[in-house]
Nucleic acid binder design. Structure first.
Length: 140
RNA sequence: UAAAGCGAUUGUCGCAGGCAGGAGAAAUCCUGCGUGAGGAAAGUCGGGACAGCACAGAGCACCGUACUUCUUAACAGGAAGGUAUCUUCAAGAUAACAGCAAGUGCCACAGAAAAUUACCGCUCUUCGGAGUAAGGGUGAAAACGUGAGGUAAGAGCUCACGCGAAGUUAUGGUAACAUAGUUUCGGGGUAAACCUUACGGGCUGCAAGACCAAAUAUACCGACGCUUGAGGGCUGCUCGUCCAAGUCGGGAGGGUAGGUUGCUUGAGUCUUUCGGCAACGACAGACCUAGAGAAAUGACAAUCACCUUGGAAACAAGGAACAGAAUCCCGCUUAUGCUUUAUUUU
RNA sequence: GCCCAUGUGGUGAAAUUGGUAAACACGCUACAUUCAGGGUGUAGUGAGCUUAAGCUCUUGGAAGUUCGAGUCUUCUCAUGGGCA
C-alpha cells in the first residue's frame, strides 16, 4: 500500500520544480546532491512528500546509463519513503525533494538503497524532530 | 556473402496505455484480463506521407542529380547489365562513370617555353636575319610511338605498322555498349574551378497545426505613411495578384507557459499461390503488434538455457556487445557481442 | 524532437582566386639588470629523434579529388546556439 509511486508523489510541474530550486536548501550526501523545500501545504497542494531524480548528461553520456541510474534511485526511494508520508500527514507539510546524482559510476542497487535509508533518517531528524520550531519558520 | 534471433519460467513490489466490470454529480478511484524498445530506436544525410503559408502563378537566381534498362509513393535507395580500374589460386571489390575537341580562368618552384614556344643546338645567309623542332636539361605534366622515305637542316611533310579521339555504316542488343569496316584528325592537366548540356526541386516544419481554459497594460524614443498608398501576405530578387490604415525598429514594463487533440490501422505484419533472371509486383486468407510528456517499458530473488575458463564427468568461478521509441514511414551511413540457418570459394 | 554554427602552438587568433602552415598578441623558458622579487631589455619557444646540423610528423579524426589540400567533397567525433 505504501510502496507505490503514483504521479502525485512525483514532482513534474515546471513551476513547482522552479520553486524548489529557488527556495530549497541544498546539501551534499554522496552519491547525491539533495535539495529540499519543506513548507506548510496550501489549499491545492497535497500533504505528501514529492520527489524528483536528476542525472546529468555530462556525467553519463549515454541515455541507457542515465535511465538505469534513475530507475535504481526511484526504486530505492519508493521502498523507503513510507515513514515520510506518515510524518507529512501528521504535520500537514508538503515536502519537495530533488536528488541529483553526482557520482561518476553506476553504484549497485544495495548500496543506493543503504544510502537512501540513511538519507530518510536524516531528513526525519532535521525536519520533524523539533517540529514546533520548524513549523514556525517554514510557515513564514 | 545473405538472412533470422537477442533469453525463458515462477514469486514479491512498482510504472504507462488499452479493454471489461463496479463506485461516484464529476474529477477520479477500485478489481480483473491482456499489452509495453531496436537492428540500428543513433547520426539527422537523402526521400516521402501529413500540416500550415489567401492563390501556389511566371522569370531569374539558388540547390540537387549525372553509364543503361528496370523497380519503387519517392530518393543520392534497390536489382540486372555495360565500361573502366584494382585484386585473388578462386568466389570478387570499387567508381562524384555527361562535357576541358563550346567559352573563360588557373597551373607555385624549376624550366627557353605550362599552350599557337624557341635558350643552347641544327641548316642557310646578302651576316640584318630566315627556316626548324632530331638532340639537351627542368618539372606532376613538354606537343602520338617505332621504322623508312624525304630535306639545306628538319618536321605526320609522306608512307607502313601500332596507339588514341571524333563522325559514320553494317551486325548483335530494349538500351548503355560490343565487334567489324570506313572517313577525318593527333587538340597537356584541372569541371570535388567558373561553367555548358539534360532532367528535377515553391518555402517551412508535429515546438507544424486545431480546440478549450486562464491571464493581462501599456507608456516613451526614432523612421515611413493615411488612397498621389507606408507596410504586409513565412521563398533571395523582379513581375503579376490580393489585403490595407496604420506599420516597422529600439530599449523599458506587464501577463501566460495548464489541459484536450494531432497520436498511431499503416506505401502495416505473416502465410499460400502466380508473374519476373532479380529488385519487385498481383490475387487470396489470417492478424492488430508501444504511445510517454521533468518523459512508462523497472527492481530484487530462485531455477533453467547460452558463452568462456578449469575438470574425464558431476560441478565451480566468471561473463553476456552496441545501445533506449517521442508525428509516422522507406532508405543510406556509422557503432556493435554472441547464437542459428542458407549459399559460395579454398 | 526539429533546425543551425564552429573546430589551426599552452591561450586568443591570422593565412587574398588551392602553391614554403603558423603572422600578431598573451603566456612560458634562459640570460642580463637587482641584495632579492617585480618591472625592463635581449634571445628562444608545436611534437619526436639528435650535442648540433638535419630528418620525420602535425590544421579534431578517417577517406577521396588534385602534381599539390588549413582551403574543395564525403563520412565521423567533439563543442556551442536557436525554437512555444
Amino acid at each position: 500500500m505504501n510502496e507505490g509511486l503514483p504521479k502525485e508523489q512525483r514532482l513534474y510541474k515546471k513551476k513547482a520544480i522552479q520553486l524548489l530550486f529557488e527556495k530549497g536548501k541544498g546539501f551534499n550526501f554522496y552519491p547525491f546532491r539533495v535539495v529540499v523545500h519543506a513548507h506548510a501545504s496550501e489549499d491545492d497542494e497535497p500533504t505528501i512528500p514529492r520527489f524528483l531524480v536528476s542525472v546529468s548528461k555530462k556525467r553519463f553520456h549515454h541515455a541507457v546509463k542515465r535511465n538505469k541510474v534513475k530507475r535504481l534511485v526511484r526504486e530505492a526511494w519508493r521502498r523507503n519513503k513510507s515513514e515520510l508520508i506518515v510524518k507529512c500527514e501528521e504535520h500537514k507539510i508538503t515536502f519537495d525533494v530533488a536528488l541529483v546524482y553526482t557520482a561518476t559510476t553506476i553504484l549497485p542497487y544495495e548500496e543506493i538503497e543503504k544510502k537512501i535509508k540513511q538519507l530518510s533518517l536524516r531528513l526525519n531528524n532535521n525536519y520533524f524532530l523539533h517540529d514546533d520550531e520548524k513549523n514556525n519558520t517554514t510557515a513564514s
